[in-house]
Write a protein that binds this DNA or RNA. Structure first.
Lengths: 131, 131
DNA sequence: TTATTTAATGTTATATTATAACAATTAACA
DNA sequence: TGTTAATTGTTATAATATAACATTAAATAA
């Protein structure tokens, strides 16, 4: 699904999330797109649902926040991995080949048929560990 | 930290979570321990925080639910992995050596110092994929 | 022991996150 | 063009979580 095929609200909200470029919460999005005519939480949540579904954004579950997907071709739209610095709150999307591979073998082993996973690492980023 | 050193509320709530043996939500816990004298959400949330901190339970972030840790010796108290069936809602804790190993090498590569991760797989369990 | 500090509790109020329900509108397409 | 599916708008409310403050219990140092 291309950005061009998104609906009005979906576009407004994706544009905003891409602009801020860091995890942002639904009500904060709402607050920031009100000048564009979006008035109610549901309008935001509906767009978020769709954007997550098509892989344009990811939800950081541990933070109830949403962030634009950095993998433009988003093959991994349904397999997200993030590292989250507990000090500066920086969040980075991880795109690691070995990990995807591991997860596949894991699937075979457990007999479970996965169609999605969510992985969140917490710790100190390089910068913050120096301090 | 042993179970014996837990406080009154912590014990009540851990006992209940261990008994139900599946992910359960804070307000559901509250409802079910009211006969034991726990009256307010905060009493539950405080105990949950502590129990998560010491590794007796885990939070399933995508479900806002809590589940007892199955690894009695809980070395992996801070490294949790779950598989979640999207059909029957069954949740299993995963304890996989290869995964822990992978995560360690990953840490070295990124320069980030991790002290915790959360991994949630979604899909269909064996039973449900047959249906 | 007793003073002191730290952890846990109790309680009320409120903040934050998310969805239900229903009516209206627009887009997709047979 | 008529029909279905997707999206929107709106109000109300459900579900999840924390703030703030007073009190009590437990741990431990003098």
């Amino acid at each position: 699904m291309q950005k061009e095929t998104l609906s009005k609200n979906q576009k407004i909200i994706l544009d905003y999330i891409e602009k801020v470029n860091e995890p942002i919460k639904a009500y904060s999005i709402l607050h920031n797109v009100q000048k564009k005519g979006i008035k109610a939480p549901l309008q935001v949540y509906r767009a978020l649902d769709k954007l997550v579904e098509i892989g344009k954004i990811h939800k950081i579950e541990s933070k109830n926040a949403f962030v634009a997907c950095k993998n433009s071709n988003c093959q991994i739209s349904k397999a997200t991995a993030f590292s989250i610095c507990e000090s500066c709150e920086e969040v980075s999307e991880i795109s690691d080949h070995k990990l995807s591979k591991y997860l596949k073998t894991f699937q075979e082993k457990t007999g479970m048929k996965f169609n999605k996973y969510n992985l969140e690492f917490f710790g100190l980023c390089k910068k913050c560990s120096i301090k």
